[in-house]
Design a protein around this nucleic acid. Structure first.
Lengths: 230, 230
DNA sequence: CCCCACGATTGACAAATTCTCATTAATGAC
DNA sequence: GTCATTAATGAGAATTTGTCAATCGTGGGG
C-alpha cells in the first residue's frame, strides 16, 4: 500500500547479459519463475475465493504457495495487484467456458442458455471465484486498471451477437445493443448469485432468465420461439 | 482483524448506576455518543466511496471525523464492520429514494422507470455510494451478516409487486417472481454502472431497460403499452 | 456548589501486518 | 569449473491495527 516498489510487474523484460545473447525463454530460470508466479496465483485464488479479500494476507498467499513472503512481492506490488491478477485469470477462463459452450448455438436464447449452464458449472466447481470475477473492482480500490472486466468482456461479446441478430432481423431492432448487453450481464450475475443461495433449481433459473430475455428481444409480429413459451 | 474486541456493537446497553435509575435516553452523554458514531459513519462513507475499501484505513476514518483512533474501535470492531454499517445505511436511503419516487406509479414499467430515475439522481449526487451498496459483500469478506443486502431488499420489493401484477393479470404469469426480480435488480445495477461510465444519455438508458423489461413481462395477446413500444 | 460513579473519548504503545533488501540459491554462458 | 546474473529467502524496518490506562464529560445525590 506504499508507493510502488520494484516488482516483476514493473520491471522491463531482461534484455540479456552484458556478455551474451538474451536468455533462452525456455530456460530453467524462466520456467522456475513462471512456476513460482503460478503457484502464487493459485494460492491467491484459493484464499480470495474462500476467505474474501479482507481476510487474505500476502503472507498467507506466500505460505499457501509454500514460498517466502518476500517472493510474493517480487511478483505483485501488493495484495490488490494479486487480486486483480486473479480475477483477470478467472475472467479469461470464464470467457473460454462460455465460448466453448456456445459452439453450435446460433439463436440468442441458445447462446444465453449455454452461457448460463457453463457459468453454473463453473460456480459449482469453484465456489467464490465467479462472484469475485463479477465483482465491481472499483469498490475495493478506487483506481481500476484499464483492462476489461469480466462484465465488460461478456457485455461486448453479447452486444456484438445482438447487433448481428438485429441486423438480420432475428431480434427487435429498437434497442441499444450495448445497453441491453450490459443489462443482460447484470441479470446473468444475479442469476448466478441467486442459484448459489436459493432453492430454485438450475433448470428453473435458466428457463426463467432465458424466456425473459427472449421475449424482451422478440421481433414484433413474429411467431414465438420455443424459448419464449413455456 | 483479531478476535472481536469489546465495542459498542457488542456491549449490552448500560443499565444505569448502582445508586439510581437508568440514564435518561435523551441525555447529553447519549446524544454525544450518537453524534460521534454518526461522524464516524459520515467519514467512513466519504472515504470508502472515494478511495475504495482497500485504501481506507481506520485511522483515516477517525481523522476524517476529527476523532481519536481509539474512538473508532469503540463503535466498530474493525474496518469491515464500519463498511457494513455504511452500506446498510446507504441501502436504507436508497430504498427510501425508490419508495418516494414510486408514489403514484402503478404499472410495473412506471415503477421501474421511477426507480431508475431515483437511483441515477442518487448516483450523481453521491458517486461511489451506490456501487458500494450494490456490491457483493461476500467478495470482501467471506462471512456476511444475515441482514438483507440492497439487492435482496430491492428484489423482495420487486417480487412482491410482480407477484401482485401476475395475480391481477397485468404481467405474464409464467415466471418465478423472485428469480425475475433478482434478475431485474442485476439489470438495474448494470444500468447504473453503465450510466456512470458511458456516453449514453440517461433517458436512453432508462428507455432501453424499461422497454426490455416491459416486453419481457407483457401478457401474451394483450395490446402493447406505451412503454413496450418506442 | 461539590462529590462521586459511570460512560465516552483519547492517544501511547503493544501486537500484527506490510514491505524492503542484504544474503543465499539457482541458472546459464564461457 | 568460474563468474555474472537472476530468482528466492527471511530478518527486520516501516506501517497499520487494535488495546487499554488515563483523562474528560455527564448526571445523580447531598
Amino acid at each position: 500500500m506504499s508507493s510502488a516498489p520494484k516488482t516483476e510487474s514493473d520491471r522491463t523484460p531482461a534484455t540479456g547479459r552484458a556478455r551474451s545473447a538474451p536468455t533462452l525463454p525456455g530456460g530453467r530460470q524462466a520456467r522456475r519463475k513462471a512456476e513460482t508466479r503460478q503457484r502464487l496465483l493459485d494460492a491467491a485464488r484459493t484464499l480470495f475465493a474462500t476467505r474474501g479479500y479482507d481476510a487474505t494476507r500476502p503472507q498467507d498467499i506466500a505460505r499457501e504457495a509454500d514460498l517466502a513472503t518476500g517472493t510474493f512481492y517480487l511478483h505483485f506490488a501488493d495484495k490488490h495487484e494479486a487480486f486483480l491478477a486473479f480475477i483477470e485469470v478467472a475472467a479469461e477462463e470464464l470467457m473460454g467456458v462460455i465460448r466453448r459452450r456456445a459452439v453450435g448455438a446460433t439463436r440468442f436464447e441458445e447462446r444465453l442458455g449455454s452461457a448460463l449452464e457453463g457459468l453454473f458449472d463453473f460456480a459449482e466447481s469453484q465456489p467464490g471465484v465467479l462472484s469475485a470475477a463479477f465483482a465491481d473492482a472499483a469498490v475495493i480500490a478506487a483506481v481500476v486498471p484499464s483492462g476489461a472486466s469480466l462484465r465488460d468482456r461478456l457485455a461486448d461479446s453479447l452486444a456484438r451477437g445482438l447487433q448481428h441478430d438485429m441486423d438480420r432481423g432475428e431480434v427487435a431492432p429498437d434497442y441499444d445493443a450495448r445497453v441491453i448487453a450490459h443489462g443482460i450481464v447484470g441479470m446473468i450475475d444475479a442469476a448466478c448469485v441467486h442459484g448459489a443461495s436459493h432453492a430454485t433449481s438450475r433448470a428453473e433459473l435458466i428457463s426463467n432468465v432465458t424466456r425473459f430475455c427472449a421475449r424482451a428481444l422478440a421481433v414484433e409480429g413474429r411467431p414465438p420461439t420455443e424459448a419464449q413459451t413455456r
